[in-house]
Amino acid sequence: MSDLSLLVQMGLGALLALSVYLPLRCGQLSLATPGFYAIGGYVAALLSTRWPALAAAGAGGLYPLPALLLEMVLAVGLAVGLALLIGRPVLKLRGIYLAIATIALVEILRVVNLNAGWSGGAVGIFAIPQPFDGPGGYLVCTALLLALCCWFCARLEQTRLGRAMAAIREDELATRCMGVPTAQVALSAFVLSAAIAALTGVVAAHFLNTWNARQGGFDASITTLAFVVFGGSRTWLGPVLGGLVLTALPELLRPVGDLRLIVFGLVILVGPILAPQGLITPERLAALARAFPARAAGGNGVRR
């Protein structure tokens, strides 16, 4: 794999980590991200290969960017719709029950994708057209998306929605007693998470050139969760770093050959023990800001 491709994958990993982070930010352990990622990928794969208007657009040359944007809009729309539909009943569940229900959801989607006629079954959908002529274009596209999502998460912390999310994570009942409609706040986080996952799926489907039911299963649920826990779940920077590092790790470990997945497992095993709060915590950021005061321009978001 080329270095640029690895960078693209790292960016996609970071995006997925942000998608897991948002519900977790308000105390909801939702593992539905891979399901919405899969939906995004299928929307892109089906539209670009089966929908005549778009499939023709990609024939012969590069797939037009407006078509890619259209896919993104439709994928986000579908994911948001589904998240709104299932969010209310699902988010009544707490803790491990919510986690299991969302895993069940992901597995249901996977089984449907594996068996339904339109999805290409186990083989999946092939020859998804390319909007860019190399990994460089994907890198720019992924970096832009990641920057957008980071900006979004950073700004969110400054709004009442972000504050309410942080409060719910600490104490949901107390938050409700402060007049905050917590069900609505949690649903917002869930919907935003679905939107980011679907966006990521669209890019990933084109990047991988093929899409099938193996994309976004239970393994993905847990690895993306590991990104967030490893990086730290109390700032948006944590999941981004976790996603970048843990996606790169198996590739960086290529020199150790067959041992690499074992080393990867060991990292996930000892990570929570050595750094229970993750690599990046608000306290460490604050300490950094004190050490380098000149660069700490956006320091007022650090406290949380």
């Binding site: 847990i222 490893f230 997945l261 990867f264 990292v267 996930i268 095993l269």
Partner: peptide, 8 residues
Amino acid sequence: ISSLGAGV
């Protein structure tokens, strides 16, 4: 997470 790591 850590038990998952052990499983991996």
